[in-house]
Amino acid sequence: MQLQQIAKVIRSKNAGPCLVTFDLIFTNVADFELARQQLAHLKREVALRYGRSEENVSVIDFAPALAVKITIPRDVVSGDIGDRDVYGAQQHAPLLDIELSETGR
């Protein structure tokens, strides 16, 4: 199952000018728990898809909002020469088709 099939929000935005942060927000506890069991897999996939080492990918589960937050360093500091997305609001697309395993559901 792909992330875009179960998350109601998959968004990106700057967290300060040096970082971009992704929020995955789920509609129910079961879907959130499914993602929560696969945080290591999410970290690996994000590292791969964004060309980062795993130690540069932070993954935090946030149960009050049924959310998983992932933060990585930006390619270029916001607004610097060569930046393509000053707010970082359109960097989420590579996340959409990350496969999550349904075993354990």
Binding site: V9, K13, N14, A15, G16, L19, T21, D23, I25, S58, I60, F62, P64, A65, L66, A67, K69, T71
Partner: peptide, 17 residues
Amino acid sequence: TPTSVAAHSLYEQADPY
């Protein structure tokens, strides 16, 4: 709502806690 308010802690922050 409880989830909408909680989700706001995520917004433009690296650490929601």
